[in-house]
Design a protein around this nucleic acid. Structure first.
Length: 1002
RNA sequence: GCUCGAGUGGCGGAAUUGGUAGACGCGCUGGAUUCAAAAUCCAGUUCUUUCGGGAGUGUGGGUUCGAUUCCCACCUCGAGUACCA
């Protein structure tokens, strides 16, 4: 009875919470609302490891704390269940991803339930559920049906754009759209065919089709992510990968660049995260400048007939330093730049093509990171300097990336280090345009302290003056203008994959058309194989029925030759992972479908729900989402806000990043002997090097001539075979892999392992492994499973230990050995309430001691501050200190033990509920008011002053707190130890900070 | 390469605004209890030392009566880098 039976207690309360729907959020409540959300988990086949719940535990503590504070808390959970791993698994095994996803979710749920989270599961969402992705498709259609009005600075409906075109053409329209759209009048517009109109409208839509560069792997017939490419070849299979242009759906996120930047000031996010979004968006002020390509009559070299219209070609560059334009001595285009093939001369053709081909094999990241190898090729062509009219050689170089800016740079080697290095390497001129600047060794890039020289009308001006003057001159000449440039690129939205949302799009006369919203969801069709088709089309190309019958509004089989005139092919790509996760937080606001008032079938979320919950108050997740999910969802929310779909324009008010929990991998050293079984070497023997002689002895019996050399081979061993003392369970290890069955083990003491005769009596007691901290992953065999921890120590122990490991936002290694400390603490806590006979439950109704009340109140203060600062690790320490003190004081009064149970309940909810019930309460502890801190219990009358000499603390002295500085000084100077440390010197100065410190200088 | 973050005992980490460095826990050492083990309890545990002391928060400088904390330069590790989620 008296013992802490965590397994029974936890099962009992988890059942109680589920049956009573204790954590169900209300959409209609007198209480203030609070919305706590975790980043969407992807249900992987490996299940949860102890690193995953870290953030969930933190947010759960916060959610429970807020309930104690009297809030109506929404704390939901669901699954981001579309994604690549399930598809990869489907390719390997042929199983439908829906099936494996379902299984993975069931496993996740089971694991999550064991940890005792206070989730409102009635609101669960799954992105791969048609009931959910219907609305992802619906939002896509809203984007398709919208354009961005720069004058009003918001998204508007395409219908309004059509109306403008019909009444006044497009000349006055100030929109974010494709480049180079021709102007037309209202009457011209009305004269266009529907297909022509669609073609034009597509250039304005917020989601549109565009040619974008991708990593194409011809053998796999698919596009790869950068991290699926290792050393230029595919991670899977090792096939070559090339950069290739492909027509894909894009999202005009660049329309929102400035608003995404401005919005950062309104949200409470960690500064590094804001910084990374700021840098990602990359706003820079400068000028766009056009350089004409020179015809050969103006340039040098032979005349060349392959330039179609001499001087009509232009290279547009963006520069942040237009003031340095007179320092331009060459230009560099990205090898993929459209103009490259048009301007390259016959002599340079071969070299250029070779270079372009070589560049196509390099990844963007590789090109950015590699600054050591300077490469490039001269195109043979020249551009005309807009002011000096001098010819400027045009080069191509892979340090210029096609997707950045215009994919071309004007190179000013005296002012930019990369240009400088390029010029030095290829022996190009480096004209100096800075007064008194030394550019013999490196470029001079300081723009604040510079005076422009050798620059015609800019001579003698500083950066700001020159900048303004040159922009004015460029605008006057018509070959440039001041411009704000963003590094942010439009987001590619197509994936050549199966396991994602189908686009509600079909193609008619080559133009995309949307499926009527009442026909949604457009369900993902079945395919017999999850690979691309033989023609290199995405997997949806394999679907038997994947055509749209416009007349009957249904998905049909492909039409036979000459038949089915209203039947059109459906889009074969699917949406990316971030589609479903860009709006899911709104779905949770609407009650789940099991509720009678749920409107989930009619709307993505009802207005009442959206207006009640507004935005997420606290969002916890990893910083790796900084520029993906967290930027895309802000974009979608701003768009939805523009179109009046949601009342807020930022999704997450406060955000906290949690760090990664790392694993402690175990390794065994291996000698790959050629003369017999594999030999494994215990850590100590390996480190000392003594193993060589031992192996020689073994080898001697086989063949005395064998040469034994050192080994540095070590392999991962499953951490479940290793105990907390780093000792390997040899028998379990031998059974792990058939090839280890007959292996020889050299033990820590140098002896050879014999089954059943190990010195310690247990199998393999004396074989040690080495440890290393690595990412926790299945492939490293270092995964620790939370349900194992729950079974052995309980969920409350797991929750507290995860918090105890260290600061929430930092990465830290998991070490199961340390968990006993936290578990012991919970046992001690239990004991505090079981001081009766035979360890039975006992609390007294008598007043608590002064010391106990002091312990309680300093703990209330600390824990409250800690929760509000997300410093959960330090509050676990405070609980330990509190329980240690109360145990020493033999405290058993209700006055202290009752508030203590509430205090600890966000962290260890099961034991808290159990104690609460034993204290005589019938209601769950989850909404009991949080204890109130009272200063009066903490007031001190004296202070133990540290007395320092020259900043070094030497002794302490207890003095009343209400005495004056002078009194402190005389008390300190009168102390015998003071004289001892002064060794006869007279102090130069005595620094006294009342209540803090005394420092004697001299 | 670029951007951001982190370096404190054997280990995880603590230290409110610049004010007693190492709280709390693990591990380790010794002891109590036990036939024994587990569990539990008690004491000790930064290093060094001639036992007076001395050194000490990645390295080297600086500011200050006083620096883990502020400033400058550097080193190492980790994360992100646009189709992993």
């Amino acid at each position: 009875m008296g013992k802490y039976h965590f397994n029974e207690i936890e099962a009992k309360w988890q059942k109680h919470w589920a049956e009573n729907q204790t954590f169900k959020a209300e959409n209609d409540s007198e209480k203030p609302k609070y919305y706590v959300l975790d980043m969407f988990p992807y249900p992987s086949g490996a299940g949860l490891h102890v690193g995953h719940p870290l953030g969930y535990i933190a947010s759960d503590i916060y959610a429970r704390y807020k309930r104690h504070q009297g809030y109506n808390v929404l704390h939901p959970q669901g699954y981001d269940s579309f994604g690549l791993p399930a598809e990869q698994y489907a390719i390997q095994t042929g199983q439908h991803p829906a099936k494996t996803t379902e299984e993975n979710i069931a496993r996740y749920r089971e694991q999550l339930d064991k940890i005792g989270f206070s989730f409102d599961w009635s609101r669960e969402v799954r992105t791969s559920n048609p009931e959910y992705y219907k609305w992802t498709q619906w939002i896509f259609i809203q984007l398709f049906e919208s354009w961005y009005d720069k004058d009003l600075n918001k998204a508007r409906s395409i219908e309004e754009l059509r109306a403008i075109f019909s009444s006044e053409g497009n000349v006055q329209v100030n929109a974010v759209c494709d480049e180079g759209i021709q102007h037309f009048t209202a009457s011209e517009w009305l004269g266009f065919s529907e297909t022509e109109k669609q073609e034009i409208l597509l250039k304005y839509r917020l989601t549109y089709l565009a040619e974008t560069e991708v990593n194409w792997c011809p053998q796999l017939g698919t596009v790869l992510a950068n991290d699926e490419i290792v050393n230029g070849v595919s991670e899977r299979g090792g096939y070559p990968v090339v950069r290739k242009k492909m027509k894909q759906w894009s999202m005009r996120i660049t329309a929102y660049a400035q608003r995404l930047l401005d919005g950062l000031d309104k949200i409470d996010w960690p500064q590094p995260l804001k910084d990374s979004q700021t840098n990602w968006i990359g706003r820079s002020k400068g000028a766009s400048v056009k350089f004409s390509v020179m015809s050969y009559e103006l340039g040098v070299g032979e005349t060349s007939s392959h330039i179609p219209h001499p001087s009509s070609l232009e290279i547009e560059v963006f520069t942040t330093r237009p003031d340095t334009i007179f320092g331009v001595s060459f230009m560099v285009l990205a090898p993929e730049h459209d103009l490259v093939s048009k301007i390259t001369t016959a002599e340079q053709k071969e070299a250029v093509e070779k270079y372009v081909e070589a560049t196509a094999k390099r990844s963007e990241r590789e090109r950015m990171a590699d600054v050591k190898h300077i490469t490039g090729v001269f195109t043979g062509a020249y551009a005309e300097h807009p002011f000096t009219k001098e010819p400027i050689p045009i080069w191509i170089g892979d340090y210029v990336l096609a997707g950045y800016g215009t994919g071309a740079v004007m190179s000013v080697p005296c002012g930019d280090q990369r240009d400088y290095d390029f010029a030095k390497h290829f022996n190009l001129p480096i004209p100096n345009i800075f007064k008194d600047a030394d550019i013999s060794e490196e470029a001079y890039s300081d723009k604040e302290n510079t005076i422009i020289a050798n620059s015609d009308f800019l001579n003698g001006l500083n950066y700001a003056e020159a900048n303004d003057k040159i922009i004015a001159a460029l605008e006057e000449k018509g070959n440039g203008k001041g411009k704000i440039n963003y590094r942010l690129r439009d987001a590619v939205f197509s994936r050549q994959r199966y396991w994602g949302e189908p686009f509600p799009i079909y193609y008619k006369d080559g133009m995309p058309h949307i499926i009527p919203t009442e026909c949604l969801p457009l369900r993902l069709p079945d395919v017999e194989k999850y690979l691309p088709t033989e023609e290199g089309e995405p997997p949806l190309g394999r679907a038997a029925k994947w055509y749209w019958d416009e007349k009957n509004s249904e998905v049909v089989s492909p039409p036979l030759e000459g038949q089915g005139e209203d039947i059109y092919p459906l889009e074969l790509n699917t949406m990316p992972g971030w589609a479903g996760s860009s709006w899911y937080f709104f779905r949770y606001m609407e009650p789940g479908k099991s509720e009678s008032d749920s409107k989930r079938d009619e709307v993505f979320a009802s207005n009442e729900a959206l207006n009640y919950w507004k935005n997420v108050d606290l969002y916890i997740g990893g910083s790796e989402h900084a520029t993906g999910h967290l930027l895309y969802s802000r974009f979608w929310v701003k768009f939805m806000h523009d179109r009046g779909l949601v009342p807020v324009d930022e999704p997450f008010k406060k955000l906290i990043n949690q760090g990664m929990i790392l694993g402690e991998s175990a390794f065994v050293y291996l000698y790959p002997s050629s003369f017999g079984p594999i030999i494994f070497i215990s850590e100590g023997i390996y480190v000392s090097g003594k193993y060589i002689d031992i192996i020689k002895e073994i080898a001697l019996k086989v063949n005395p001539k064998l040469l034994i050399t050192k080994t540095d081979v070590k392999i991962h061993v499953d951490v479940s075979f290793v105990n907390t003392h780093n000792e390997l369970d040899i028998e379990a290890f031998k059974n792990w892999r058939p090839e280890y069955k007959d292996a020889i083990f050299i033990l820590e003491d140098g002896s050879i392992y014999e089954p059943n005769s190990s010195p310690s009596g247990r199998p393999g007691g004396d074989f040690k492994v080495s440890r290393e901290v690595e990412k926790m992953s299945k492939s490293k065999y270092n995964v620790v499973n939370p349900d194992d921890i729950c079974n052995q120590y309980g969920a409350d122990t797991l929750r507290m230990y995860e918090m105890f490991l260290g600061p929430l936002e930092q990465a830290k290694p998991w070490n199961t050995a340390g968990i006993t400390g936290v578990h012991g603490f919970l046992k001690k806590l239990w004991k505090l309430y079981h001081s009766g006979e035979n360890e039975s439950f006992y609390v007294s109704e008598e007043a608590a001691s002064k010391d106990s009340l002091k312990t309680l109140h300093k703990t209330i203060k600390k824990v409250q501050e800690d929760i509000e600062n997300f410093s959960f690790n330090t509050s676990v320490s405070s609980f330990m200190i509190a329980v240690n003190e109360l145990s020493a004081e033999k405290c058993n009064s209700r006055e202290v033990l009752e508030p203590l149970a509430i205090l600890i309940s966000p962290y260890a909810p099961h034991i808290a509920e159990e104690l609460w019930e034993k204290l005589g309460h019938l209601e769950s502890i989850s909404t009991a008011p949080f204890p109130k801190f009272e200063e009066k219990y903490l007031v001190e009358s004296t202070k133990e002053y540290p007395i320092s000499f020259n900043g070094k603390m030497r002794f302490t002295l207890e003095l009343p707190l209400d005495i004056s500085k002078e009194e402190i000084e005389s008390a300190v100077m009168a102390h015998e130890k003071t004289a001892q440390y002064l060794e006869g010197r007279t102090p130069k100065k005595v620094i006294i900070v009342p209540g803090k410190i005394v420092n004697i200088v001299g």
